[in-house]
Write a protein that binds this DNA or RNA. Structure first.
Lengths: 111, 111
DNA sequence: GTCGAACTTCGATACCTGTCGTACTATCCG
DNA sequence: CGGATAGTACGACAGGTATCGAAGTTCGAC
């Protein structure tokens, strides 16, 4: 299991395999919700997964990103030593519209 | 603290107080999601909170219902010895549209 | 080749929380 | 009144999981 395989995306569920239970459980954690919110503001092509600040260590970050990826919330692809993460907006809207990412206000954001 | 106070609703957040973090965390538990899904099929006036079957004991049910209520997902009002529960559809759609209850397919339901 | 940066993996730990059983309260009905 | 029903409160426990640190891997740059 090489951590950076150079090619293609890391394992993730296909659109039809996305389970709303998994998505909700993934989003239920404050750290993961924080991450996804930041990612939602990033360009659609995605950003390096490490650039979003999180109040946890690197290994914990890896843990949370794997959960988000396994749930089908995000995609990650390798680019050199980096992982580019992006939100699976279309897949989420198609498979679990109840979890639509189009409106996730921050606590401080005005509605 | 009388368990059945005869009057009014049990404490719950106002619409403006509903936090998407809380809602997502509440829905992240399989037992609670099961409950909410069943409740979503019930008449809009609500149903006695005990009639929805759950694979847990009464006290655990109380625990889960309190979490759903505190998160703003459901309302409960006393009627005799019963609690009538109903989904806060409008409040959820207004405060956390990302958690819109209008489409929560069951695993076995066809999309 | 060597170094550093970016992540992952693994093991250990500590906390959270879902679970249950028991006891208790309130209401309804006979 | 007494019993049955519906639900809550509380304490205890176990499993899950979020967390960290240390070690390892890959890649890019010098």
């Amino acid at each position: 299991m090489s951590p950076v395989t150079q090619q293609a995306e890391l394992p993730q569920p296909a659109r039809e395999e996305i389970r709303i239970e998994q998505v909700l459980a993934a989003l239920g954690d404050p750290v993961r919700l924080l991450y996804v919110r930041e990612l939602a503001n990033a360009p659609a092509e995605g950003i390096a997964c490490g650039v979003i600040p999180l109040p946890v260590t690197k290994s914990t970050r890896t843990h949370h990103l794997r959960i988000l990826r396994n749930a089908g919330v995000i995609t990650m692809r390798a680019e050199g030593t980096r992982r580019i993460a992006c939100l699976r907006r279309d897949d989420l809207n198609a498979s679990t519209p109840a979890c639509s990412t189009e409106y996730w206000p921050h606590p401080t954001d005005p509605p």
